[in-house]
Amino acid sequence: MSRLNDANEVLAKEIIGRYPKARSATIPLLHVAQQQNGYITNEAIAHIAELVGATSAEVLGTCTFYEMFKMQPVGKYLINICTTMSCALLGAEQLVQHAEQHLGIKAGGTTPDGLFTLERAECQAACTEAPCLQANYRYRYRVTPAQLDQFLDDLADGRLDAEIPPHGVVARVRQSIPVDRGVGAVAPDEVHEAPAWMSLGEKS
């Protein structure tokens, strides 16, 4: 539950292979770690440092620079309510209070069942749709308190599983690229023709 598990270590090595310098894989590997555990453990950081040939302190520095990497366990659903200007003007603070009451926690906290973590967030670049929020970085726009209640209930009851995966799952895209796509680290002067994947789609 702490270092990368065997399958993820294999994946990590494959990801490292895509870059000319192993260190460049630091951020992708942090995503793998967060996907595995829901947050980033110190053991995972030390493991990533070993894999990319950096010190743990360097990986920690990179990791903590990014808000989306969590160093503490968070709930299955991370609810970020925007409280920046446009949203603030259209009732974001009331929305936060409403969410706090609904969930029985203060912003910044996690429900005892581990289902929800509530946070105030900075502008989510959806100002025209204020007030807005994100659950595991999936948007909901012009949210009213009633819609918020419904949304939280839907999440809790699993009705949105198809759209919103648990926290840490960055995207439901494949991590490994089939060999026939010819993707990988290639020095620029070794490139003589267009990469295989460019022509793959052409025929179909």
Partner: peptide, 22 residues
Amino acid sequence: GDALISFTSRGNETHITTFPDE
């Protein structure tokens, strides 16, 4: 060549740390 201290966090939170137990 001993990068055992590093900036962590960002913005107003930025500070120097070592990795725990290192």
